[in-house]
């Protein structure tokens, strides 16, 4: 579904698809941040950016969805807030004299499409309060939790909703899946 044979076939740099252009933009920004404003660094930078963009496009062919700007703008504060709470939660459990842990495993079936969206979802689970993604089999995620009393399902569903908003999937489409 997500693998697109088009990108395996052409090796030329001629095809400036929007995805290729987007990658060039991202890698150029990274290069600029790394090297600063020195113009001569682009002697190495331009080939490096081009090669990185092409390799990225070939190794991780872009999927059919694109990143929504408004989704990203809403995701960042959500993520910062959640991971801060996660840090506070761990701090509380680590420093309290009483044993506050009540760990367990929870299974969750995700509706997110296969590929980068799902991987992104699985990786961000680990930064949420009290949850850690332990295994991913198809669409089933095994989650380890620090406290079985936490509202894990609600938290994960909320995260899933935010990731879906990030990649332009409406909630109606999610329901139909």
């Amino acid at each position: 579904m997500i693998r697109d044979h088009r990108f395996v076939k052409d090796f030329t740099f001629v095809s400036f698809s929007p995805q290729f252009f987007f990658r060039i933009l991202v890698f150029s920004t990274v290069w600029f941040v790394l090297t600063g404003s020195d113009i001569s660094s682009w002697i190495v930078g331009v080939p490096a950016v081009l090669i990185a963009s092409k390799l990225n496009l070939m190794l991780a062919p872009s999927s059919h969805y694109s990143i929504s700007l408004s989704g990203a703008l809403r995701f960042v504060p959500f993520f910062l807030n959640q991971s801060f709470r996660g840090g506070i939660d761990v701090m509380r459990r680590a420093l309290s004299a009483k044993q506050l842990l009540n760990p367990g495993l929870v299974s969750y079936v995700t509706l997110l499409p296969e590929g980068s969206a799902r991987i992104f979802f699985v990786n961000t689970i680990s930064l949420l309060p009290g949850t850690l993604s332990a295994e991913l089999h198809g669409n089933q995620v095994t989650i380890h939790t620090l406290d079985r009393g936490l509202p894990i399902w609600a938290n994960i569903q909320n995260l899933e909703y935010h990731v879906a908003a990030l990649i332009h999937i409406s909630s109606d489409k999610k329901k139909s899946l």
């Binding site: 991971s83 801060f84 996660g86 840090g87 506070i88 939660d89 761990v90 701090m91 459990r93 680590a94 420093l95 842990l101 760990p103 680990s126 930064l127 309060p129 009290g130 850690l132 332990a134 380890h144 620090l146």
Partner: peptide
Amino acid sequence: SGTVGLIRFPDIYTRLHALTKADNV
């Protein structure tokens, strides 16, 4: 507290929680 968790928590999974979350924040 991340380090305290790494030392105090009982198993590998809980230690991972301490390490990743606390240190990243």
